[in-house]
């Protein structure tokens, strides 16, 4: 029963995703690798769509991943699975929010959790970079030339995008739209 599995996998992801937004990424990657429902490459596309459309990124990614796996019903199930842990936990916490905020154990746990969360997102980023046109491991292995490992146009695009982001802090949608245009003009996918 694919829908039950979707519900269960996204429930787990929702339960252990701390810090919102991209924190869901390592868990979605884990789902991708374990189930084969979608690829790491598709996951990167989901991030692009999630960043360019309204709504919380984590929810957008769950909806998209659910749709890829099981159509309309799949996306509803995945999104519900992803948000049920939040709703239950917050409903309980809201009864004693003041105590929760000042609890020493809670504070200590999150002191450690935040560092781990950034580390996990970094690992996921390394994998996403590996799957992008920036690196072509297959070509490097066949030619043995180090120049074939890194795509120069890709690297230039990345550096320029980063500088633009730091300097003007535009909405992500502009970075993604610009990257899309560069990709089409320079035929990044090679087709």
């Amino acid at each position: 029963m694919i829908y039950l599995r979707l519900l269960f996998e996204f429930f787990k992801a929702g339960l252990f995703t701390v810090g919102g937004g991209l924190a869901a990424l390592p868990f979605l990657e884990d789902i991708a690798v374990k189930t084969g429902w979608f690829s790491v490459e598709q996951l990167t596309d989901m991030i692009a769509i999630s960043e360019s459309t309204p709504g919380p990124i984590g929810i957008n990614m769950a909806t998209y991943a659910g749709f890829t796996t099981g159509g309309i019903f799949g996306s509803i199930v995945a999104t519900l699975g992803f948000m049920i842990p939040s709703v239950i936990i917050i409903t309980i916490v809201s009864k004693f929010i003041q105590k929760f905020n000042e609890n020493k154990i809670v504070k200590g746990a999150f002191y450690g959790l935040r560092a781990a969360s950034v580390a996990l997102i970094s690992t996921a980023a390394v994998n996403a970079i590996g799957e992008s046109v920036l690196f072509d491991l297959a070509k490097y292995q066949s030619t043995g030339s180090f120049l074939d490992l890194i795509s120069i146009p890709g690297l230039i695009l990345a550096v320029v995008a980063f500088i633009v982001l730091k300097k003007w802090n535009p909405h992500p949608i502009f970075i993604l739209a610009g990257s899309a245009v560069v990709g089409i003009v320079l035929k990044f996918a090679g087709v």
């Binding site: 997102i121 996403a128 990345a158 980063f162 990044f188």
Partner: peptide, 20 residues
């Protein structure tokens, strides 16, 4: 569409690094 997404994937990596 494929070329666009190959470009977009690079942009996504940059956005992720920035949030990290």
């Amino acid at each position: 569409v494929q070329n666009a997404f190959a470009g977009i994937r690079v942009g996504v990596c940059v956005l992720i690094i920035n949030s990290i």
